[in-house]
Amino acid sequence: MDEVFRALADPTRRALLDALFTEDGQTLTALEGRVQMTRFGVMKHLRVLEEAGVVTTRKQGREKLHFLNPVPVRLVHDRWVSKYAEPWAATLSGLKSYLEDEDMSTVKTVSWEQGTAPVAAGTAVFEVYIKTTPERLWEAITDPQQRAIYSFGVGVQSDWTTGSDYVAGVPGTVDISKGTNVEVDPPRLLVQTFEALWSDEVRAQGTTRVTWQIVPVGTSCRLTVIHDGLPDQANPELYGGWPMILSGLKTLLETGESLDTPGSLMY
């Protein structure tokens, strides 16, 4: 958390995050045009943001794309805001306003989904470090009982073999999603098609793809969730719940407890 606070303390770094909030998946050249600074200076600031985890990168051909990763901000919120601030304990104001440290009394409070950055490139990337083993993390992702704890009651049923189907939902209450397990390589990689079911609006968005990548880092794991194949001007509900889910997953594996954030904000 110290690294996150340090990253957000600099106005140039906040401006870079604002730029990614407006349009995710930008190259270094594109971001250089957003601030009055040399290319080397922008690279130094991006390095700080990457080290704090609030920016993550992906290679696309010869280009390196930068993505806003809201998970660390969500964790800061859960640790330092939610237990002190009511009644918006489980909400965030628009991320741009939050990072610029504007006077909260003048900012309209919106839900996390409403404050999620637009996905112009058709891809949303979320990353979190969890102190656990790859096997334990894989189990938490695929076990329906554990999944329901950090997904606010939403369990996932599947035999977790390549080509098999899966369904997710709250039994007897609501269907959340369904799809196919395109690639299953435990405890390293899970690639799934994703068809949202919880409302007519998200059903109309069509089928997208979710990739879970687990990489051991010392005694921890880096979990990256890539939600791609998103349509132009995708409904933020499709991908807006990931920061909350990953925060809950990290909390469960590291503390054995669940977050108090109500699941009604996710859908």
Rank of each mutant, 00 (worst) to 15 (best):
Val156Pro: 11
Thr133Lys: 05
Leu249Ile: 07
Lys96Gln: 12
Thr208Ile: 04
Gly206Arg: 08
Val119Met: 14
Met37Trp: 02
Asp185Val: 13
Gln145Arg: 14
Asp175Ile: 00
Arg47Gly: 02
Gly61Ala: 06
Gly256Thr: 13
Ser111Lys: 14
Gly163Phe: 01
Pro144Ser: 06
Val107Trp: 02
Ala234Ser: 15
Leu137Lys: 09
Glu127Gln: 14
Pro186Met: 01
Ile141Leu: 15
Trp138Val: 00
Glu63Thr: 09
Pro144Tyr: 01
Gly172Cys: 14
Leu49Phe: 03
Glu113Cys: 10
Ala148Gln: 06
Asp165Arg: 04
Gly25Trp: 05
Ala124Cys: 09
Thr27Phe: 03
Tyr150His: 02
Ser158Leu: 00
Lys83Gly: 11
Trp198Ala: 03
Ala19His: 12
Arg222Val: 02
Val119Ile: 15
Tyr84Pro: 12
His45Gln: 14
Gly94Thr: 10
Thr116Lys: 13
Asp24Trp: 00
Leu99Asn: 12
Gly229Trp: 04
Val154Gln: 02
Ile141Ala: 03
Ala196Met: 08
Ser177His: 06
Leu246Arg: 09
Arg203Gly: 01
Ser93Asn: 09
Gly122His: 04
Ala52Arg: 06
Glu50Pro: 11
Thr91Glu: 15
Pro72Cys: 01
Pro11Arg: 10
Val76Ile: 08
Phe21Ala: 12
Gly241Val: 07
Trp80Glu: 15
Asp232Gln: 14
Ser220Lys: 12
Lys59Trp: 04
Glu113His: 12
Trp212Asp: 08
Tyr239Asp: 12
Arg62Ser: 05
Thr27Pro: 14
Ser247Tyr: 00
Arg39Ser: 13
Pro231Thr: 10
Ser158Cys: 00
Thr12Asn: 07
Lys96Glu: 08
Glu100Arg: 15
Val107Ser: 11
Thr133Cys: 00
Ser82Met: 11
Leu65Pro: 15
Thr261Arg: 14
Thr261Ile: 11
Val76Arg: 08
Asn235Gln: 13
Thr132Pro: 07
Asp165Tyr: 01
